[in-house]
Design a protein around this nucleic acid. Structure first.
Lengths: 199, 199, 199, 199
DNA sequence: TAGTAAGCGAGACGGTACGTCGCGTCTTGAG
DNA sequence: CTCAAGACGCGACGTACCGTCTCGCTTACTA
């Protein structure tokens, strides 16, 4: 019945899997996503092409897994909650800005964001696996603030989180401006301005 | 200076230029950006490949010009100013949402946004030519409102515009949600909430 | 040593090799050598271009192998030796004339002779593989005649063979005359005239 | 009627004609016939492509004219006739050998001989213009010798000339041996051996 | 002596083929 | 069975030239 005989995952070579991830991340940084090739990854990883085709459907999928593997411990613990919402947001967003400014991050993340724009399937996974968890912690922190009365009860916290994060990531993705700490602070202040309950 | 003898633009065939634009836009809609090929464009346009390579460095550049040519009259007149900022923003942003939901728009715009993410040079042109003018009209409308006292004087109108537009376009690009009129209204209201001067 | 990683000949597809030969020979007959293209051979053979480029450096090399493969059993047995040198030479040379007048032979042979004129490497192979064996059998027959006293002992049999064969093939290659049986007979008689020992 | 409006030869630029010849001969020596291109000739000659296409149908035709122009004074006066046929033939053929060994000669001559093999039209012109006159002087000298009784009356002098010249030029064209003075001498002696009248 | 039509240098154009790269599939032999 | 290796059919790449076609320009011949 199944005409694509599923490979037996239990016999899979962990060694090859790791080598493929390392090669993919290294190469996307060196030559860029467009010139990243399955053949190139296989050669660099010392692996047969079939070993890649057996486990992934495309170079985007490889890169997504490779990148996810390097970030999987991220966002586990949620945002800090010191009681000062503005301070907490600034603290975390400044750290995120530093991360986005790191060259090693840029190439794969940009590549995946771009690939996702043209590939609906991929973008669902990309968003669900990498972006959504990051957004959720902000949403949760905002909801906590809302419950504490720091944020007006009629605010849609999801949209509020997007008002904070989208300008930030858009700026980075489109290179319309630098992600400085000053920028982060101004953005947080201006967003929070609208969230506070009216007296 | 230029080591690649520049072609003589005065001898350029307008006929071919147009045919290339039409073919590029049609094909990107039919087969998608990844399967869009220079060869395919040339064949569809009834043009030699060299005629494309002579004038553009990549398929992204062709598509950018093709798309720009179809939008160049856009954004000339600025946003309406009825005195009611919220209404004006909702009116225009609803129209933009409709445009972004139009299939003919999607393919080339997504393709260019994606290509720009990996190509700094291209993204500068893409942003400067297509995105900036669109943002600017919002910035100007906000500044007008600020002068009219509808928006607090300490607001950074550029960031305010991004708080409005980035969530909108991010949502579309990443497919994190639908661009409905309801969404637009909520977004506008929630952004404007923070801009108003405190009494 | 070898800087172009040599392909693994043991994995080579015999099927493709044959199909390429057939296509090359058919096409050179149909369209001529100048319009013979690697691309055309590949298409006709139902083969990827790379499969040709992997194993041959040029269309001339393909054609040489294709032609050789069709002639390899030729010239195995040497010239007949009935004791009558003139008769033996005429018999074989008449047969050769018929062969040279055969259209299927003409195209590839002319093509290779021509290509060899401009490509020293190729001409060495062409001469060594296709022409020399043909000349050698004449040289051997002449040497046998010399030992039998039919040919003067001070004759250089190699040059004698060329006196016989070069006018013949030159006439054909340059189209300076027809290769008739009469011509062959006259040529043999006039050459032999000078070889006989003086009484 | 005539749909190929013949160009007006009286207005033709002699300057361009010469420049084209020089460029063609220089280039065929530098890059070989296969890599000789009309565009290359035009560029080197500082001439528009159309100027070449206006006056010649192919690069072979250009080269043929260019080469002929450089040899046109040749073969005017016939072979010397000192009364000693062997000496006369050796003298001229040694000179011809030297000429054939000259690098400047080789490239265009080989190219034309090769092109002629595949192009009947061209070969007729090549043979008629360049080869035939050269053969004719030998034929005439042999006929003179025949009339003087040095050559048997039943000899076909045309074939005799070919017995002399074809081995010579075949050896050169196919690179089957060097054209030394020794070779020439042996060849002449062995050919003449068969021409002398029997006592 | 001005007007006109040719040849000319230049090079853009619609094409064809080049030789290369990478795709995704398939086969081979080792572990 | 997975794996490294890599040949295969295929399709696109970006380049080189083909032969045709304008475009000004120079340079005779004509009116």
């Amino acid at each position: 019945m199944a005409n694509k005989a599923a490979p037996d995952a239990s016999r899979r070579s962990e060694r090859s899997r790791r080598a493929i991830f390392d090669a993919a991340l290294a190469l996307v940084g060196e030559v860029g996503y467009d010139k990243l090739t399955i053949e190139g990854i296989a050669a660099r990883a010392g692996v047969g092409k079939q070993t890649i085709y057996r486990w992934w459907p495309s170079k985007a999928a490889v890169l997504l897994d490779a990148f996810s593997a390097g970030v999987e411990e991220y966002d586990r613990q949620g945002l800090p909650d010191t009681g000062d919402l503005a301070a907490d947001l600034k603290f975390v967003l400044r750290a995120t800005a530093d991360e986005f400014n790191d060259a090693a991050w840029q190439a794969p993340y940009r590549a995946l964001a771009a690939a996702g724009a043209n590939d609906e399937e991929l973008s669902r996974t990309f968003v669900g696996r990498l972006m959504e968890p990051g957004i959720r912690v902000y949403v949760e922190r905002l909801r906590a603030a809302q419950e504490a009365g720091e944020v007006a009860p009629d605010i849609d916290v999801r949209i509020a989180a997007e008002m904070l994060l989208s300008p930030f990531s858009q700026r980075w993705l489109m290179r319309t401006g630098e992600l400085t700490h000053d920028y982060v602070d101004t953005l947080v202040d201006q967003v929070l301005r609208g969230l506070r309950p009216r007296d």
